[in-house]
Design a protein around this nucleic acid. Sequence first.
RNA 1: GGCUCCGUAGCUCAACUGGAUAGAGCACUUGACUACGGAUCAAGAGGUUUAAGGUUCGAAUCCUUACGGAGUCACCA
Length: 614
Amino acid sequence: MNILEQIQAGVVQAVQHLYGTQIEADSITLNTTRKEFEGDYTVVVFPYTKVARKKPEQIGEEIGHFLVEKLAHVTHFNVIKGFLNLTVSDTYWHQFLLDIYSDEQYGQQPSNSEKVMVEFSSPNTNKPLHLGHIRNILLGWSSAKILAAAGYEVVKVQIVNDRGIAICKSMLAWEKYGEGATPQSTQTKSDHFVGSFYVLFEQKFQEEYTKWQASSEGVAAFAKRKDEKQDQAAFFKAYKNTYFNAESALGKEAKAMLRNWEDGDPETVALWKKMNQWVYHGFDATYENLGVTFDKLYYESNTYLLGKDLIQTGLQSGQFYQKDDGSVWIDLEDVKLDHKLVLRSDGTSVYMTQDIGTAQLRYDDFKVDRMVYVVADEQDYHFKVLFEIMKRLGAPYANDMHHLSYGMVDLPTGKMKSREGTVVDADDLMAEVIQEAKTMAAERGNLAELSESERNKIHQQVGLAALKFFIIKVQPRKRMTFDPKESVDMQGQTGPYVQNAYVRIQSVLRKAGTMDLEPAVKYQTLETAEKDLIAMLFVFPEIIRVAAAELDPSNVANYCFDLAKAYHRFYHDYSILRAESDAAKSFRLALSTSVAHVLRFGMDLLGIEMPDQM
RNA sequence: GGCUCCGUAGCUCAACUGGAUAGAGCACUUGACUACGGAUCAAGAGGUUUAAGGUUCGAAUCCUUACGGAGUCACCA
């Protein structure tokens, strides 16, 4: 039993013994003591006033005495109002550090024999990745790492949205206006090359639409609008989709291309393959730069027809119903999710159909116990419905499907809009933060001795640390504002700040040479700063557990920052290599080593590498 | 309009899930290098937690109701 469990068990005993009432260990409010009071942990005793029929102060005194007497490692206590502050013995913390300091994987929990699949990234293949994808990828990657640290076996997948009208737009534009150009011939990163044709299509389409608005058909359409109050600009904005589907020449061509693709027309399929390959090459480079990998890729072109058999099964079992036109629906009104279409009247799939089929396919492939979908919060409703449907279909994993829903990323100037060209490109962004790291490093000149490739590696590690930490420190649920200027900051609450704590430790350890731990055993009285650091190391496994349970990597990011901050302060206030005794020196080296392990392991969970120098 | 999420210092974010005087960073002011790495540390200032009620010994947190912002309510994905 660790110290927290001991205290909890002690309080249960105390309440039983003193007041004759059985309480649950989980119900005890046990916090770390606020720094303005003396003690390590605080038990809130207000809840026991009813069973004890005494004042909170008195209850605190009674339980405090009980714990000090019964628990070897609780040395003394004080009571303020209803708060019982307990002090844990130095020997407990001392021993705890000696137990963990050599464990580089401290925090890693043993296997829980459960398998979880994490789906993230899942881009469309018509244009390059942008800032929104970066948030998605970082959340997915770090959640996967955290789940693995919490004892799960993890399978990382994505569903590549490689078909549909979007890629056809890029294909059509390339065919019409590309004149045979290739990424090689234009010296362009290949996914950007394809994206440029998507933009070109939108431009051409907009030109066509603008022209049409002034034509007699356009004027007539505006005149027939339903809402009299709607002005011209608003109307044509709202009408754009209808125009694309019903009137546009370009729209007709794009849709024809999509039909050709679905019919397996060899030329169209060949073009589709060629352009997707370009995109994949580009994506691969971006993923490699970001340091993420996947265990398996699912392609929508292979899965978009799945799910129909499950719809049939559900229809037979009465979970679904069919309308006269042949379309199939599910009634989810009892859980306030309305009626939802699962199969069109012409028998073709909708998005939901595919997701039902894909979930089953994945289960068949991997036999996972849980599934996590990292998808933006605009799809909250979709996933509620999907999970409910899987439950009703009796999927064995249905109760452990989770939507890691995250808020959109805004810029200081407002929303990102691809049509208005305000999207922050992923590759550009990474290049920018790395360049900034390079500039900062050059100013400091700490890396002058290294080779250029070694320096570049460190610039990459530092720049990406700034970017990744900046994004991951925010709770996923919350919409976040991304200020490019702040994202390259390297001081204060940032990735490089945490790296710097690690780098300082490495520097000290290098200078210390081989470590002799014998004297550390004799180090008796701990400084408060030392005890605080050990207590922080102590909670690390719990941080991982909570982050995994909540699917919230920001817990780990904020923990790493807090630990780095506590260490920077300790480092400033106490001498390590010139400590007052061999015992102190040796103990502080062990403490520093352990802090370094945890910082490295913790940051690795966020996909952030730690350099030895910076 | 229905439903869901969000609203905390000038700005970006925390707050151990109902606990003590709401904490960090940035920016601003000031101080600390003959020092184990100053990408650091310390100090100052900055708050009616959008507002009003309610529950509770105790509320940023839970419940109403406003207000503000976002998302969604497609035989799109």
